[in-house]
Write a protein that binds this DNA or RNA. Structure first.
Lengths: 194, 194
DNA sequence: CCTACCGATCGGTAGG
DNA sequence: CCTACCGATCGGTAGG
């Protein structure tokens, strides 16, 4: 039924925002229910267990990330031009999507929260981050092939450092509310991609 | 009494390890009590409230960090030499202190966990991270003064990027169990500090 | 999708 | 430091 689908979407939108602040463990069924005017049974019925709710929330966040960070850059020329567009969109996503992710990037939150636990949630976080890195690595490789980056450039090294820059930016924005860090991230990317 | 002090130390050692894995919110009084063979009252008596237990746990983690990362570098020549020694010790701390911090750096965990909440825990995390950054900034400034780093170097930029490198290393070690990232962090530091 | 309920665990208190 | 207890909330189930 279309109504059930719509309810599921509402639950996930609320779940992404809640998990961004409280973590995927702090994403409780009771709180979701209260916030949406549903019963706990009504929430849980769409997912079966809390773990599956957590995985569904992560996947929805990945769809949003793709839409907000990848889509604006996708049609740029592969290689350095697209990498730069991705970095721009990535920074914009961290700064501007306070409504969707009031507690900052959900992948930063979830990767820290589950990095020492076993289970389906941890596996899903790791998988989604790997997919993203493959995408970045591809454009780094193209940039090297095109001579836009030095021939000896270590692809994984660039991806590692890019990841660090945006983890640092997320922390600076969320914990210190320091928007000047956007400029720092931009400069760090420039230094890395030239 | 010396015994009470000893019990408090035992609670905090266990608390640091537990919070490293489960977060400072997942650090529950009941679980601490069970793990230490105490009653809940026995645990809480040393701190009063859970929030104060969380702050005490963070402070203990900061003492450990100082001992493991700052102390080995402290007597190096201020400036670039000491910065390099700090980076070495910082990486070693993330890789080797699995027993003390089985879930990785507690400051990485706590900063993500509390970056969207108000209260004493958030303030303490932010304060401790600021103290550490001041320390790093000082040696960057000395290095510039000594001509070891270019005259136009932006101090906060270097600190920002250093922080990113070690956040990325922590994630790579914990979520992906990728020890090759240590070499990547080392290379990123070299690139930054030359 | 609902109400009504389950056992477990949470932070915290009282009294000793 | 203990036992015994409080109300609230957790994930989840039953029956409709």
């Amino acid at each position: 039924m279309a109504e059930a689908r719509h309810t599921r979407d509402r639950i996930l939108a609320c779940g992404v925002a809640l998990a961004s602040v409280e973590g995927l463990e702090g994403l409780t069924i009771g709180r979701l229910a209260t916030e949406l005017g549903l019963s706990k049974g009504g929430v849980l019925g769409h997912f079966g267990t809390k773990e599956r709710l957590q995985v569904a929330t992560l996947r929805r966040a990945a769809e949003l990330f793709t839409h907000l960070v990848w889509a604006p850059a996708e049609h740029e020329r592969p290689g350095l031009a697209r990498l730069r567009a991705v970095c721009d969109a990535w920074a914009r996503y961290l700064v501007e999507e306070r409504e969707t992710f009031p507690g900052g990037c959900l992948f930063a939150t979830a990767s820290i929260e589950f990095d020492a636990r076993a289970g389906a949630v941890r596996e899903e976080v790791a998988r989604l981050l790997r997919v993203w890195r493959v995408r970045l690595a591809h454009d780094v490789r193209v940039a090297i092939g095109e001579g836009e980056l030095a021939a000896g450039t270590d692809v994984e090294q660039v991806v590692f450092e890019l990841n660090g820059i945006f983890l640092a930016l997320n922390q600076q924005l969320q914990l210190f509310r320091d928007e000047r860090a956007v400029e720092r991230a931009r400069r760090a990317c420039e230094r890395l991609l030239s």
